[in-house]
Design a protein around this nucleic acid. Sequence first.
DNA 1: CTGAAAGCGCTTACAG
DNA 2: CTGAAAGCGCTTACAG
Lengths: 335, 335
Amino acid sequence: MTTIKEVSRRAKVSMATVSRVLNNTVPVAEETRLRVLEAVEALNYKPNAFARGLVTNRSGGIGVVINEISSPFYSGIVRGIEEVAEAKGLHLLVSSGHAQASLERRAVESLKQRRADALILQLEALPDDDLVRWAQGDTPVIVVGRLIPELAGRCVYLDNVAGGYLATKHLIEHGHRQIAHLAGWLAIKDARDRLEGYKRALDDAGLPFDERLVIAGNFTEEGGQRGAEELLARGRPFTAIVASNDQMAAGALHTFRAHGLRVPEDVSLIGYDDVLFARYLFPALTTIRQPLAEMGRAAARLALAALGAEKPKEVTTRFDPVLVARDSVISTADP
Amino acid sequence: MTTIKEVSRRAKVSMATVSRVLNNTVPVAEETRLRVLEAVEALNYKPNAFARGLVTNRSGGIGVVINEISSPFYSGIVRGIEEVAEAKGLHLLVSSGHAQASLERRAVESLKQRRADALILQLEALPDDDLVRWAQGDTPVIVVGRLIPELAGRCVYLDNVAGGYLATKHLIEHGHRQIAHLAGWLAIKDARDRLEGYKRALDDAGLPFDERLVIAGNFTEEGGQRGAEELLARGRPFTAIVASNDQMAAGALHTFRAHGLRVPEDVSLIGYDDVLFARYLFPALTTIRQPLAEMGRAAARLALAALGAEKPKEVTTRFDPVLVARDSVISTADP
DNA sequence: CTGAAAGCGCTTACAG
DNA sequence: CTGAAAGCGCTTACAG
């Protein structure tokens, strides 16, 4: 690896000058500049990021911890983050938290130690307190997926209670009265919020809440399958289901089909997220959309603003769930 | 941020000693060790990664460039990489290449500059030459998704010609004679290889190759939809389709349904990849499986071995496509 | 506009 | 087993 010293030697200038032309910090005589650039080119010089970071205390990277990089849901967020970070020449340091407190903590500490310029955290296990404490450190912290009062303005989130409500209300408006809920993993707040929304919608419509119609799953296709099986086994009649995400809805669809039940003729089904494959299921899945990439972009912009790389423009920080009506819900009167 | 100096002061030892207990490089008297540890704890000291990297020339991170982080296909690979890297305490530096030569090159250069300890590269646009040249540098390079003769043993790949062949042969064995192909983006080698496999299988079966039955798509659901539309519009009769990936198959399924065509009764369909949602489509998609996570793990192990963090165990480097028969293919005799 | 020098926070021979 | 010192490769006041 060539160093700045070799470049300075070749260009017959001091190391300081090389540094100046590379970083564009102060004006340098055009002739000198050219000589330096020529040397840089000829020697294929790349500044050592460690040395630079040691003195500037900047890494040029944004640290991201996301629950599960390989899930279509979370990677949609990462994609949005990447898009804007890349445009600013910042790179990403990504870790998965796997919804485990110890892993989440380790990931954040490691990111801080490596001096990520900003942290975008989508954590599931750690309590708000930890986030608040980290946010008090020198590294700007942006929170995805929760609203923490102390950190308002640094949180990008979607109201999942409203989303659960919206989904349930949609079914109620289609005449359904016995509505089951395939809940997500209740250790995750999103799951609890959607359940809460479901309850409120029932309540507002004067419908009783029946816990036998609620199954806690785990946000996976397989969880949806098992949940649907159990629901069927319980024998409580229902005409519609609110699934806590699209993957569980896909699993439920599968199970119903295996049991000879038709969706939506025999049971209406609504998902949550609107991941890419939702519209390719059969029937095309009615669902609640979360604008994942957009949320990721918002988080990245907030991070850029926090670290001063970008003017703090207006950044939408609160997103609303929107209903995407496709073919998996039908009125009870219809068939 | 506390520094090693403050720790050494508190523990009443030299900085060298602090460094020694933290890195476990040489034996340190137990009593001293405890004092140091106490100070580290009390001061909540975290070594500065830049300073450490500057002298060791190691970052403790593995650089990954992958075509598209948010695609279910690629993120499956990343997940495998992450799994083994995490277990070794190495972090990941991830960039997307977006199948563009300039972005791929930029990503790799950036990773090298940041002194990633090893590079795992899944590139689409750059030619083998670039990979070979990089591999000659000081950073170990592992290649995912191609076999480069000069870098054999450092390549994790799956024979896509064999996969395309396998898919096509499966249809032929079910009596199909007019088999169309929804190709992927032909700028990507995987797409070309699968097409090649398709041709060979036809040839081996004595079936003519008809280019009017081949549509070049782009590996997305939407591409599959459009491809299927065009295929229908061309009016050439066909009884089965080989799609170059599952996402395109999902799109085609959608289009056929819209046209009142049933899969598999009217047209058999086989996908490629076996991404998670493949089995949740209706009909459940027959496809060619790629063991993504396993390939990612293999790449990570190769990287660890290359950088000496792990004994070079036996690592499978070549993977075979396997047929997963589900419900989207039927014999021509059957219906 | 440019150079000499200090310093960022570590690790690692070199002595003892 | 431990300490003093050099050095990793940059950037940034400080002078001129």
